[in-house]
Design a binder for these strands. Sequence first.
DNA 1: CTGAAAGCGCTAACAG
DNA 2: CTGTTAGCGCTTTCAG
Lengths: 343, 343
Amino acid sequence: MTVTIRQIAEKAGVSRGTVDRVLNGRPGVKPQIRERIMAIAHELNYVPNMAAKALALNKNPVKFGVVMPPKEIAFFGEVRSGITAAAEELKDFGIAVEYRYVDNRRPEEGAAAIGQLIGEGVSGILVSLMDDELIRARINDAAAQGIPVVTFNSDVGESKRVCFVGQDLYRSGQIAAGLMRRMLRGKARVLVLASSMSFQAHRSRVNGFRDVLSGTEMEIVQLIQSYDRYADTHSQVSDALARHTDLDGIYMATGDVAGCLDAVMRAGLGGKLRMVCNDLLPEVEQWLRQGLIDFTIMQNPLRQGYTSLRIMYDLIFSGKRPESEYLYTETSIIIPECLERNP
Amino acid sequence: MTVTIRQIAEKAGVSRGTVDRVLNGRPGVKPQIRERIMAIAHELNYVPNMAAKALALNKNPVKFGVVMPPKEIAFFGEVRSGITAAAEELKDFGIAVEYRYVDNRRPEEGAAAIGQLIGEGVSGILVSLMDDELIRARINDAAAQGIPVVTFNSDVGESKRVCFVGQDLYRSGQIAAGLMRRMLRGKARVLVLASSMSFQAHRSRVNGFRDVLSGTEMEIVQLIQSYDRYADTHSQVSDALARHTDLDGIYMATGDVAGCLDAVMRAGLGGKLRMVCNDLLPEVEQWLRQGLIDFTIMQNPLRQGYTSLRIMYDLIFSGKRPESEYLYTETSIIIPECLERNP
DNA sequence: CTGAAAGCGCTAACAG
DNA sequence: CTGTTAGCGCTTTCAG
């Protein structure tokens, strides 16, 4: 029924060892034989048996490296749980995972970590780091040595990574707009808050939001960039609230949610404006429950972690390349009723 | 590092074969020895190696049975995809899956299918059938013979199934109420549509909805039960619309969405009432896009299928019982912006 | 009731 | 460059 390496060997008139070499791209086989074996494998529709592979690899498991921000940051803790969940499932299947936690504000740290992992002979690397020249260079180094890299949660654009696993930011902007529309029917005026439009990643959400609203009577009265700084956010939002007294809602695409909310409260507008933000930081959960924020749009950090490791596993063990360069994890709409713990 | 069956054997002064018998509850070992081996296994913290198990089982894989409505029903097609996805991942790990598609309106068919699978010697059964006495009896038969049963998507209450994998219906009702509140602030009057309140499953959603609204100024003006019949739904909703001219929204907990929507359209109220329903049938997708329905609350059929098979696998292969009797899959809030296929 | 041995499909180390 | 061999940890005969 299922075709094995041995059958290929017999049909090709060579030994299992040789077939193994060919199938795993190891050196030291005459090109002719190599081709013949490949042809036969193809013809017979050979699919390697994972269990057997795993068992044989048991002694020196394949090592994967992970470089990410410290797991103490709540969000990344979740991501890591996803990775460990996948690792747990695959524990018996010949893999080991090596984590490196780095300060994401210091690209040289991340780059160094990647370099180290390459040195240690890992077979693949998962990377969640800022989009920086140093990082990109190391990713390309790895790729050049045949070590696949998968970026997760935040992509490193233009690099030679195999794929990116994370949120579709543009879509999350679209969804935010859809929610606003459903709350504010017809003519309405909204404020948009972003940390900075100069990064592609930050722009995407705003673009998604804008594109959906462009077909409606709703209007974006102002776009605030406050670089994630509380004081900056607070003062800019306060100004905007004073200027646009007829405001109906605020979309916090990125940036400091606390600064924005405090400004709204101080202006005595708590609960009067429709507010949509992203992710589920503890403060946000509070505000959601209090009705100060209406919706938050969430990434699924757990699945981001889980998926990235599985992708890497499938890539290394079955040579299965991901279906697309961008693997978007679901983004979900959250209201407090989603969070209740029911009996 | 990792402890093997052989180490246990050595420590106990018996052969690997005996240890295997004990660890897998096979008969034919003296109670004393059995206990001693168990003790040592415990002490050494033995965890079986899945890959090895799988490989050894390769010749006669463990068979799982699945009894469910025909996969031609869109929803169940999705569920099945989840099951096959899990089966695919586990293909090399010593399992095979046998499907039986039955007409869910005829419990005797389902019961017969379960009986057959038991006869064929499956090691576990996944069941998605109506909550009926015949089904319950067969599930209990299986359980009595030591064959674990997992129900998915729709539970069979009071049966000896190991656990249920599916949606938290009460919560989906809560979420619906939460969405209504966000669209209709303050005083508002809503209609609730259900197919029948005499089944626990159908009641749950309505209860969740009602419980959330009970703390607010919103009011349920009427609860319609129309038993999933189009004509019935259409006429009852039409009547209700005529009677309650100040209606603000409709929650379709279960029941015939088409009948309800047609009545609303005919009354000239298309787009004027806030509407929330469940699941994503093709018609619903249409109406969502047209703005006739505001939100739909979705189960994740794919994950329901995937999870049930994994649960069964873990149960059989590692003896790991699920954490709870109820394994709820995420329920997500859908607006058309969630469905756009972006470039 | 228990032990010994063969084998699941693949890899790796050592010979040739 | 290629073949041979000895496992990986567990299950499953077949003897005893």
